[in-house]
Nucleic acid binder design. Structure first.
Lengths: 230, 230
DNA sequence: CTTGACACCATACGGTGTAAGGTGATGTCA
DNA sequence: TGACATCACCTTACACCGTATGGTGTCAAG
């Protein structure tokens, strides 16, 4: 019978393949549309078969988070730290907006995977090698990570068009502009004078924030060095 | 019959009451344990009765987010802006850690309520009145909000004890310390030299971050004024 | 006495994660 | 060769979820 030797057999499911497929599904339809049954169908398999390779759905989610961190390149050792960290921040923001579900997941997953830990390790290594003390490195990472994640969080929850400007939302806002000016005059003024101006893109705020933080870190670093020299 | 005049009748359900009860449930058991059936039971009612007062579960979630923003006091007009914004940042962080589910919700809800808009309006008003230009106010709000939300996000996803130190997680970490030192030496070093030291609390990083950002904003503000004077 | 709004409820449908227990193909060893 | 274990997958079932549909009793106004 032909069932004996399926030459072009379906590739066997693995944890990796399952996680990768889950990431694709979440990218396409949002994290809330990811179910074990749909994931199984995508892999050409029944739902319960996944549990042979994966402990639970949470296990899949943990894998997805780790997959996201795995996509972020580390700042290359030996380069000037300010521009390297600027590029790195941009890289993190870019993968978080490429996988908008990731930020929500980070909130609930508390068991980091190998890629996540490796990522942390790499950034610490880079900062120490750039002359940061251990506690300044911790300051810098906490500050930058918080800002970048928070920015990505805000950015994805905005009703923006893909181009990054507010054209998609403008129409709705305009329709309510009148009501808003009465109840929230300052908010309306900001919208009118700034946000609704052609060319405004919320994403531009990111550069300002990262620049300000890096500048502040440089100052703090110099202060620490000076007080150590005395 | 006694059914004709229940003098101490059950208080009727309203949207407000439902939202408030939902917040209490989410505070107690996490957002993922909040279901329409449990919420109804809490209000002494059947699940479908909620839909008379509320459009959908998403509607409840929108209300919860708005309720959180309503808990945040606005910076009082007339006070010095740096200390006012420092206090305000601490206030935001405090309500976000009091309602850990809120940060995850902000990610998915894109239709802000009245309290949310009023909050934004109040902060804009405060900054303008403190001498910020419109674009500097936007910079400041984006930067501080992103940082505060991001910090709260990281803080809640950490396996911390309530006291804010790492005692609860220490044991597990210690057990894996050996493995970690081999695979992630820098991360292990940071844990050993800094995080596991008695008295360390991740929450302390918040003050450093807010201080650095406020200092940077002050500098940017002065630069803008100077270049305007020339 | 009728009418209609109000606040609530019963039932049902299609979805979810996953526990429990098969089923057949494959490889190992007596 | 035959027995047996392991692997990768499947079937069935359960408790739970959000909510569409269509009630049902109370009450005040006409």
């Amino acid at each position: 019978m032909n069932s004996s030797a399926p030459v072009f057999a379906r590739e066997p499911v693995t944890r990796e393949r399952a996680v990768r497929a889950a990431m694709v599904l979440a990218d396409a339809g949002g994290i809330e549309s990811l179910s074990m049954r749909k994931l199984a169908r995508e892999l050409g398999v029944e739902a319960m078969s996944l549990y042979y390779h994966v402990k639970s759905k949470d296990d899949v989610l943990d894998g997805m988070v780790d997959g996201v961190f795995g996509e972020i390149p580390l700042p290359p050792l030996g380069t000037e730290w300010k521009s390297a960290m600027r590029d790195h921040s941009e890289a993190v923001r870019s993968v978080l907006t490429r996988h908008p579900w990731a930020i929500a997941l980070v909130d609930t997953r508390t068991s980091p995977g190998a890629a996540t830990l490796g990522h942390l390790d790499g950034v610490i290594a880079f900062l120490l090698q750039s002359g940061f003390s251990m506690s300044m490195a911790a300051h810098a990472m906490s500050l930058l990570d918080s800002y970048v994640h928070g920015f990505a969080l805000q950015e994805t929850s905005l009703p923006l068009s893909e181009s990054g400007d507010i054209s998609a939302a403008t129409e709705d806002i305009m329709r309510q502009q009148h009501l808003m000016s009465e109840a929230f005059p300052h908010l309306a003024a900001m919208a009118e004078e700034l946000v609704l101006k052609p060319g405004y893109a919320y994403g531009n705020e990111f550069g300002f924030g990262v620049g300000l933080i890096l500048q502040g870190l440089e100052t703090a670093l110099a202060d620490a060095e000076e007080s150590a020299r005395v």
